[in-house]
Nucleic acid binder design. Structure first.
Lengths: 97, 97
DNA sequence: TTAATATTTGAACAATTATTGAAATATTAA
DNA sequence: TTAATATTTCAATAATTGTTCAAATATTAA
């Protein structure tokens, strides 16, 4: 978390979700739970490098948590932050066309 | 509303709020209700032209409604869309530091 | 009609953000 | 140790977004 002012962090969270790939990452992890961080490159067209950059942005917004297990990195959501800025996100954004 | 797919519109809404000026416009209108669209140029440093461009983005995301009364334009929120993508927004984003 | 005020538009430029490919780093297995 | 796989970092470039200023449009008042 870079900044502690509510509105600054809020804008950062919106920025993090203001990209189709990152929005999809968040909704997929929300649906499936913790995922291997590079599983996504099969699901969407995105290189591993691009994904890595996207993770950094989600992480800087404090929306995701990454955990390293051996060679692999796993991504999960920081529900505390998601609920702080986007309460009801799961209900509203999951399983929508 | 340009696109009818839920996630595309959602990303558009996040993009619209992913800028400090636009976030402030939305929270101010939420707090005060309908406002003269150029009242903001006193509140923040932003030219009328920049504000006009910002309104177009908020309008394209279907977040605001503009109403013309004589020479003046008034801005209000489209609560239906705000509630569809960001339920609880008012409660969480109002009167925060 | 002309003048005054309000807002929008468009084009140019600046700034930020996204993507790429190659090289670097880390971990594990052989 | 070397090789293989996973992920990150870096620098370059591409693409998008934000701001500015000037011109255009709209509305009302004189």
């Amino acid at each position: 978390m870079a900044n502690n002012k509510f509105s600054d962090h809020a804008v950062k969270v919106f920025k993090a979700l203001a990209d189709p790939t990152r929005y999809q990452i968040v909704t997929l992890v929300l649906e499936r739970g913790e995922m291997g961080c590079m599983d996504f490159d099969k699901e969407f067209r995105s290189t591993k490098s691009a994904l890595s950059h996207h993770y950094r942005i989600l992480e800087n917004a404090d929306l995701i948590i990454t955990r390293k297990e051996g060679q692999h990195v796993f991504v999960s959501l920081n529900m505390e932050v998601l609920n702080k800025y986007l309460p009801g996100f799961k209900k509203t954004h999951l399983n929508k066309t």
